[in-house]
Every structure is written in C-alpha cells, then in structure tokens.
Design a protein around this nucleic acid. Structure first.
Lengths: 338, 338
DNA sequence: ATCAACCGTGTAATCGATTCCACGCCCCGA
DNA sequence: TCGGGGCGTGGAATCGATTACACGGTTGAT
C-alpha cells in the first residue's frame, strides 16, 4: 500500500508538501497541489489512519458500548449514534456487553487501548471499578439510557415519568386495578427509575403496589417469563403485567401463552420501549416509546462537545405512551365530544 | 496517559526491555521482569494499540460490513462474529450499510484506512467497483450470506435449497397450489438464489410459478408491503406469500392486515430467515431458519485463516424449515406411526 | 537601495511502540 | 590463559504521518 513517501516521490515534492495538500493547508502553490493530487490519484493513495492518529493523538473515533445487541432498542440506538457521528466526521466502534460487566469492561479497555476520542456507554448491571477510574481519568464520556450514580458524567436519557403516568391512567380507565411490574436489575438506574415512576403513578391513582407485584428481572426475555409465571401463580394474579423493557415483555407474552391464557382477555401486557415488532405481535402491545433516534443523536452531540472542549449537557427527552390492544380495547370510550 | 518510556524510567530499564516483558520475549532476567511489571502496575500502563499497529503493521481487528443493523438476522450474525473473533484475540468493527452501496463503500474505505487485518462483508445491492479493487488488491476478505459473483473471495453462506423444498412440500401437503414469492434485489446473490430454489421446488411439485407471482422487493419491510398489495390486487391472488427475508415478511403481514384479511385463513405467509419474534407474531410465522451463529463463526475462521496465511474455505451450511401456523395448521396430519 | 514581511518549500523532530544489532559479562572448553 | 558462545541489556532505526523551524526568493514600504 502506497505511503506518503511514495506520493511525494511521484509528485516530485517533499512529504511535508503532500501532507499540507492533504490537510488543505493554505500555503501550497497551485502547481504543487496539482502534482500531488495527480500522484494521489495515480497511486490510489489513502492516508494511513493509524499513523495519523499516532501523530495527532486523535482518532476521530467514538466508542459505544451497549448492553445487548440483540435488543432492538439498542440497535436502533446504535444506528442513530453512528449516523450522527458519521455526519460529524467521526466513526463509531460498537462493543456489545451482553449485560455482563466483565464483557463490558473488556470492551471499554479495548476501546481505550485504541485511543478512541470519547466513550458512549450504557452501563450493565453490577459494579465496575474500571468505569469509575475511566470517568475520573478525564476520558470524554457520556452515559446513554442508563448511568452510574455518583459519577460526574453527563447522561442522555428518556424521561418516562409522564408516559408511565399516562399508561397507568389508561389502564385505570379500562377498569384495571391490580397492576404488576417486572423491574430491571436493581443496580441499573433505568431499572429503578421505571419502578419509581410506576409506583408514583399508582399512588396518584390511589392504587396499591404490593411487593408481590414487583418482580425482579434482568432485561432479558427469560426473566420476563420467570417473573410472569410467579405472578400467575399468585392467589390473586395481577390484571396487567408491565415489563420494564421489550425483551421481558416478550418473555411475559410467552409465559401467558404457555399457560393457555389469552391477552388481553385473561391478562394484559404493557412494555417500556416501543419497537417495530410490537405492532405485529398477537395482540399488538401497548408500550412507552422512547425517542430513540433523538437520544442517540443528543448523546453524540454531548460527547463531541466534551471531545472538542465545549461544555456538555445532560439531556432528558420525554417518552410517550403508545396505546395498542394488549391491555384491552378502549374503542368503547370515544374521546370525541362532537 | 503513561507511555512505554514512563514505564522504562520508573523501572530503571530501557524501553526495549519493557517491550520484551510485555511481549513475553524469553531473554529478560526475572529481576528486570519484576521491576517492569511493578512499574506497569503503579502507572496503570496500557500499551498504545495505535503505536503498536503502526510498527507491526497489524491491528488484530476485523471489519464487518452488514447490510442492515435493524435486521435481527444481521445483528445475530454480528454477535456471533464478534464472539468468535474475541475468542481468537481479534476485535471487530461493525459498519452498517443500510442497504446503500455508497454507505457500504464509505465503511469499507474507513475500515481499510484503519488498516484492519481482514474484511467480512455482506455486499449490498448495486455494484461497487471499490469492492472489486479491494478483492483484487489482496486484502484478506470473506463474503457472508451474500456475495459478488466473479470475485475470487471465499463465501460463507446458508444453503436453502433443501429447506425451501421442504417448505414447498409442506405447503403442497396443506393443499396450497398458488404460491408467490417476494424476491430480494436482483443483484444480490441471496435474492436470486432463493428465487431459484423456490422455482425448482415448485417445478418438482408440478406447480406453476407465473411471473405475476414473483414480486421484486429490496429486503426492507416497505417493499414487502408494496409487493403484497400487488399480489392481493391480482384477479387470482396467491394462497401463500413467501418472503425472501424477515423484514419483507413483516411488510407482507402488514399489508394483509391492512386489507382486513386473516392469516392463515385468507392468505398464508412464510419467510426466509427465522428470528425470535416470529414466535410471537399473530400468527407465529413458518420460516426457513439459517444457522446464523454457525455462519458467523465459520466466516471468522475463514477470514482468520487468510489473515494468518492458511488456505481458507468457502462454506455452505444447510438451512432448515421451521413450521408454525402462518400457512395453516397441519396438526390434522399426525406423523407418529405408533 | 534597504529591509521587513511573506510565501512556498524542505529538513528533521516527533508520536509510542517493536526489533535488529552490538556490547559487556560470564562460563566453559581447549 | 585465551577465545567462543550464550545471555541480558540498551541504543537506535523504523513504521507513516504532522508540524515547527529554517531558508531562499519576492514584494512592497520607506
């Protein structure tokens, strides 16, 4: 592969001049520029990003560590992150933690070894001293979706309070009173936050949320299945199961089916995270939709702000309720007042 | 961030010795080794992968360019690729082409600029002279799932012939005769191959496959919707629509629903690619399942073979039919012969 | 006419690693 | 006693870029 020296030789100039042409430095004569450009063309020269990074101490690359690639929410996030970054001249390297702290740490370390300019992270459950070190070391860093409390790192996330309140209001209006929730891992902030929002909304509607109606999940389908089975085995099972993410909702759906029960007639299901597939399940699932694309874009902007020395901003974007039929139809209560 | 010089100073040895310790070169005294290791510990030193790559001319990184991150088939593939690569000491950088040749080329170029050791690619529709150049230039490269005919590049893919034959047999047994297919883009090999397999199977069962029953899709949900609408508008619409990938099947499902028709009573749907969600759709979808994990792993092995100078092998792994209820129940024909 | 400013260019240092080569030392055999 | 052969070590070249600095040649102001 041709190097800058080959180009310089071919064009009859020094490597410095070649470099200047390539970086559109002003003081190069049109003649030299032309010869260099021609040489580049002839040789099919492409600058070696590795060498360039070593010298300039910047890679124009962002790292993104997500909790689970198989979760459509995170792939949607990854896509918008990559898009926004590309638009701003950065590349993105994605690491998949699979909800395992060791694997998360592996990726964080590898990314740091590659001297990425900044790190976008949705921390997995379980603590990671590494993360604390990295945050303190001054590496540009932004949390997306989830975060680690106590670290001075900007967070870009969805605020589900309002949407969860809308959800509970919707369920209440449909006549449901016994609502249960499948929570995320206690150590993830989103896990807690969603439970809190739900608890608040329940209280506001004068509904009780007994401990038996709070199941511990881990954001994976299996845990949704397991918790739902426990709910169904209760002397007084809930009328609605609200899963804190889309995968657990899927597990819940499975468990209900396996019992030979129907949704929503026998039991209703709702989910945090809206994904394209929820339109096609039987029945279509009522969900709290996060503005995933906006989150990804905002996160990249915040991160690049840090990288380029500007003041970053934490962002919380509102989520919104998308009503479908998995908790019962509400066509019986028309809203029009004509 | 500490460099090898800092470690050398701290340990009171030269950088050469530090390097030798780090690369477990034999001729280093236990004493020196101990001091270096201690210094590494104290400084929290991590070797700069950029510098190392520049010197050694290898990055221990593989590039993976997939056609669409939002397609669960490709995320599953990406996951297994990353896993296998990690197990062998390589990292993976993923690029998402979004089925757009220019974006694919952008990623290929960026990956090459970063001097990845090898490239795993599932080429998008449309031709790309760049790909031909890269293949000819001797860059280690392997195609997964799709490929570009005429290039001397190993291909790792699923062979769907048998499974598609099983599918047609299954449909035939259920009494269906008018079967239609939503093809992928003509220029993608998988697109053609799946149509050919289908055509062969139809012929084997003495069934006609009129042109009107072959729709042109592009592997995206929208095209599935559009083509299905055309099928439904036919004087004699098909009894079954077979989509050449999972996204188009979803679009087909949408189109059928939008018409107020039921699946499978009014029209059946089947898909190439099996994904976890197909269990949860209404109704669960009959599909041809690719051994995605095995494909990813085999692809990485083939690529690393090239990178490390061994002879690579093209691989075709058999796909298999997974019968669900989207084409009609076949519980009426028990297989047991007890 | 003189000098400063400026322009285009090249030389060389530099980034952080790896690795070839040489050097000093010790041990062993002749 | 002397020489050859490891062994452990350090010096320095090298990878491919960027960039500070120096240099020669114009140009314009005084």
């Amino acid at each position: 592969m041709a190097s800058i020296k080959d180009v310089a030789a071919q064009a009859g100039v020094s490597v410095a001049t070649v470099s200047r042409v390539l970086n559109s430095h002003p003081s190069v004569s049109p003649d030299a520029r032309g010869r260099v450009l021609a040489a580049v063309e002839v040789l099919g020269y492409r600058p070696n990003a590795v060498a360039r990074s070593l010298r300039t101490d910047q890679t124009r690359t962002l790292g993104l560590v997500i909790s689970d690639v198989l979760n459509p929410y995170f792939t949607a996030l990854a896509r918008s992150v990559e898009e926004e970054a590309r638009g701003r001249g950065y590349s993105v390297i994605i690491g998949n933690a699979d909800e395992r702290p060791e694997q998360q740490d592996h990726h964080v370390r590898t990314l740091l070894d590659r001297r990425i300019d900044g790190l976008l992270l949705s921390p997995a459950d379980g603590d990671s001293p590494l993360l604390t070190d990295v945050a303190r070391s001054g590496t540009p860093m932004v949390f997306v979706d989830r975060w680690v409390p106590g670290l001075d790192v900007p967070v870009v996330r969805a605020d589900g309070h309002r949407a969860v309140q809308d959800l509970v209001a919707h369920l209440h209006a449909l006549g449901h009173r016994r609502l249960a929730i499948i929570a995320g891992p206690a150590a993830t902030t989103t896990g807690n936050e969603r439970v809190e929002a739900f608890r608040d909304a329940m209280r506001a509607h004068g509904l009780a949320l007994p401990d038996a109606y709070i199941g511990q999940g881990d954001f994976q389908a299996d845990s949704g299945r397991r918790v739902t089975e426990q709910f169904l085995a209760l002397p007084e099972p809930p009328e609605i199961v609200f899963a804190a993410d889309n995968l657990m909702a899927l597990g819940a759906l499975d468990a209900v089916r396996a019992r030979g029960l129907r949704v929503p007639e026998d039991i209703g299901i709702a989910a945090f995270d809206d994904i394209p597939w929820f339109v096609h399940t039987a029945p279509p699932i009522t969900a709290v939709a996060q503005p995933t694309g906006d989150l990804g874009r905002a996160a990249v902007r915040a991160l690049i702000d840090i990288v380029e020395g500007r003041a970053p901003q934490s962002v919380a974007l509102p989520a919104r309720l998308v009503v479908r039929s998995s908790c019962g139809e509400d066509t019986a209560t028309p809203r029009s007042t004509a």
